[in-house]
């Protein structure tokens, strides 16, 4: 069984909106509910630990009831960084395995979650090839990266809960910062295999306002069943 550690603590500052993006409407539905509804169809996910700002808990609880979500959901406090939010959520995870996902990525199908859970390694992530050239540099070019050796990291990711807790403790002790958890696990446990499952081209992370417009198109094309 898995717990979904669902990161919903973002403030949406890059969206230039008073309402954080995960609570804005996408295809007529709050962004955050897209994933919660689909996860509700997965019996392998025993519980959701939702990391969010305290003031949004009542609104989310109301939405869970309105949308008839039956999977139990508990709240964990959002941290000042993503890393701290994951650590806060991990403290509440009760299953041996955890899936980390973020509310800003609403375009994950039920089958995508299933594929990740069924991956033949206990630690796995979604990743896509990078279809463009990547250089190193700031004001001047300082080098080139071999794109065939790079992976565009997508969420969700799955981990052994205890192992992820352990590396988060180490990172905190070291004062080290990571933008996602596969990199952290690999840094402290390079011997642990992290399987890369094929990501999806539609798994857009909503970051700026234009992503909401693009997201409407993705929803129409990928999720709306009436063609």
């Amino acid at each position: 069984m898995f717990t979904l550690l669902f990161l919903s603590g973002g403030t949406g500052s890059r969206m230039l909106n008073a309402v954080p993006k995960q609570y804005m409407l996408l295809a007529g539905k709050p962004v955050v509910m897209h994933i919660l509804e689909r996860v509700d169809q997965l019996p392998e996910i025993a519980e959701v630990v939702m990391v969010c700002a305290k003031e949004y808990e009542p609104a989310i609880a109301l939405m869970l009831n309105q949308y008839g979500v039956r999977t139990p959901v508990r709240f964990a406090p959002a941290g000042s960084t993503r890393q701290e939010s994951v650590r806060n959520g991990l403290a509440m995870v009760a299953t041996d395995n955890v899936i980390v996902h973020e509310a800003a990525r609403p375009f994950v199908k039920v089958e995508d979650f299933q594929r990740l859970m069924e991956a033949n390694e206990p630690n796995a992530m979604l990743g896509e090839a990078i279809p463009f050239s990547v250089l190193v540099g700031h004001e001047y070019v300082e080098g080139a990266l071999e794109r065939s050796s790079l992976v565009n990291v997508q969420l969700p990711q799955k981990f052994q809960t205890q192992l992820l807790r352990e590396v988060h403790e180490k990172a905190m002790a070291d004062g080290a910062t990571f933008t996602e958890d596969a990199a952290m696990l690999h840094k402290y446990h390079p011997e642990v295999p992290i399987k890369i499952c094929p990501g999806m081209p539609y798994n857009l992370k909503l970051t700026t306002r234009i992503d909401m417009l693009v997201g409407e198109q993705i929803y129409d094309e990928v999720f709306r069943k009436r063609k």
Partner: peptide, 11 residues
């Protein structure tokens, strides 16, 4: 509602 409920397979 035709559009809104399409994802659920509700016609």
């Amino acid at each position: 509602l035709t559009a809104e409920l399409s994802e659920y397979g509700i016609m």
